[in-house]
Amino acid sequence: MSPEPTTPLISVDELAVRLQDPGPVVLADVRWTLGGPPGQPEYEAGHLPGAHWVDLEHELSGPVTGAGGRHPLPAADVLAAALSRIGVRTEVTVVVYDAATSLAAARLWWLLVDAGHPDVRVLDGGFAAWQRAGHPVETGPDRGAPAGDFVPRPGQLGRVDATGLADLLGSGTPVVDVRAAERFTGATEPYDPVAGHIPGAVNRPSPQNQTPEGRFRPAAEIAERFAGLDEPVLYCGSGITAAHTLLALRSAGLDGRIYPGSWSDWVSDASRPVATGPA
């Protein structure tokens, strides 16, 4: 079994060297854009050699039912089937990536770590960084892989649901909203029926954890952004970006918990309180 990595990130040059080693690595391409278009055509137009396509909407999310938000967590058997399909094994490193920002890749990273996989890395800068570095690219459909033997056991990482978060409000536990500032204040809300934020939350937009090229900022800078927010509960619109911020925290040696349903789940019950304006 591979030892738990000291950082969840891997650079393109480090990965290029790793792929020259005869030891196996599972590469998962999770390119995705909120609202579409689907990322599979991008994958087929060019991806890391040997990488397997993973569909965030259908394999890494469950059906929208009202509760659970816009991207509910997938059923355990759906996740298990997806991981088996791409050949995930317990003793094999899994490297996940997306187009550039690691936003979608963070979803699979979180699901894998939460399910108990010991060695999951995210390609810092994604496919764009791989291309800029001049590393080889493969085209065409997914070539498939021998079925993996990893059995996911979700629930290994800290998380809270709406009831648990409501109980925490006012307790001193930091709650961090990682959406854009205009969504936090309630000035605009393009996706959900109610604008605003959870009362008592502070705003730390997730994109500010990265450079314009999609690389995560140094650990010291991320730690400074979250100074005084010890092991916060993280939420976003539907849970995807919250995982991205947890990835940033882990890259800086920090930790937190995710509210997977996030804002879209919180506002599905009109009895839950909503705040607007600055924190």
Rank of each mutant, 00 (worst) to 15 (best):
L15W: 13
A16Y: 03
V17T: 15
R18F: 05
L19F: 13
Q20K: 07
D21N: 09
D21Q: 10
D21F: 08
D21W: 06
D21H: 06
D21V: 10
P22V: 04
P22M: 03
P22K: 06
G23F: 06
G23I: 04
V25L: 03
V25H: 06
L27S: 03
A28E: 07
A28G: 01
A28L: 14
A28M: 08
V30N: 05
V30W: 00
V30M: 02
V30R: 00
R31W: 12
T33D: 12
G35F: 13
G36V: 03
P37H: 05
P37L: 07
P38E: 15
G39C: 00
Q40C: 02
Q40M: 04
P41M: 14
P41N: 07
E42F: 05
E42I: 02
E42V: 13
E42D: 15
E44C: 08
A45L: 05
A45P: 00
A45K: 04
H47K: 09
H47E: 06
L48N: 09
L48W: 00
L48M: 05
L48K: 04
P49Q: 11
P49M: 15
G50H: 11
G50P: 12
G50T: 07
A51D: 03
H52M: 14
W53G: 00
V54P: 02
V54G: 03
V54T: 04
D55N: 15
L56Q: 01
E57G: 05
E57D: 15
H58Q: 02
H58V: 01
H58N: 15
H58D: 12
H58A: 12
E59R: 00
E59M: 08
L60K: 02
P63H: 11
P63D: 08
V64Q: 10
V64K: 02
V64W: 08
V64E: 07
T65D: 09
T65Q: 11
T65Y: 06
T65L: 12
T65C: 10
T65S: 15
G66M: 08
G66Q: 01
G66S: 14
A67C: 06
A67G: 05
G68N: 00
G68F: 09
G69S: 10
G69D: 08
R70Q: 12
H71G: 02
